[in-house]
Design a protein around this nucleic acid. Structure first.
Lengths: 124, 124
DNA sequence: GCCATATATATTGCGTGACAAGATATATGG
DNA sequence: CCATATATCTTGTCACGCAATATATATGGC
């Protein structure tokens, strides 16, 4: 399956590029709010950001895998009586530290951008 | 030559990824403040952002080339009596429009990120 | 005269990551 | 029995930041 097609109005936009580097931060942050499984995160992101930060499953699962390999999240399989098994993710201690670090780097970057974009040409 | 080595403390950081997609916006914005040549932009970025948004020449020149191909900037060669010829860039009308568009997309994205990161786990 | 350094542009090649597309499996409703 | 929703995973493509490298002009020191 593949969710979140976005509006196909032709224009691709730079959203794809802007997300680079920030997706890990986004996922770590969401997990800091509570344990969650992949499919849940995909839908949650679309809902919580009013479509402003959509992610497809084909994007998210590799992110989760990277986080798992990095030791930032721990997993737990849950097989409900009825339904498909779910893989729950939760932050490890290292994950919390990484979240703090990435948050800091994001804030630094966003501030630098804001400061730069604030500069206006002199209006004589 | 290759400028702006950054601090080589080992950590690569996610700065590289965060810059993706925003570099065109940065350059378009700088050019909206006035005509400039490549080398000037490289040094100006380091100074104006206190090293917060450094760019190497190996990164910038391809960006300028893309903007030129897209019709967002127009060029003018200037050969001073003494010194290496400089290639000056200035925004075209399409460039101003693109700048407005990218600025809007950046603000939307940054707002969505800020809104998301503001959410805190319930502190019972 | 010669070499290092600063100024200035340009190009090649590598690595990474977002994402479309496709595969697989379980349950439900028509 | 077939379409749809839920759920996970993998493969291949494309774009882009950047290190490395090349080239050219001027200046200052030895």
């Amino acid at each position: 399956m593949s969710t979140a097609p976005g509006q196909d109005d032709g224009r691709k936009g730079i959203e794809r590029e802007l997300k680079r580097g920030s997706l890990e931060l986004i996922v770590l942050h969401l997990l800091s709010l509570g344990e969650a499984y992949g499919y849940e995160i995909v839908t949650a992101l679309t809902e919580r950001t009013n479509g402003g930060l959509e992610v497809t499953d084909g994007t998210l699962y590799p992110v989760l895998y990277r986080l798992e390999r990095g030791g930032f999240v721990a997993i737990r399989w849950e097989t409900p009586l009825r339904g498909v098994p779910r893989k729950y993710y939760r932050l490890t201690k290292a994950g919390h530290a990484e979240l703090a670090q990435l948050t800091h780097e994001w804030n630094t970057f966003a501030s630098a951008m804001a400061r730069l974009l604030r500069q206006q040409p002199e209006a004589i």
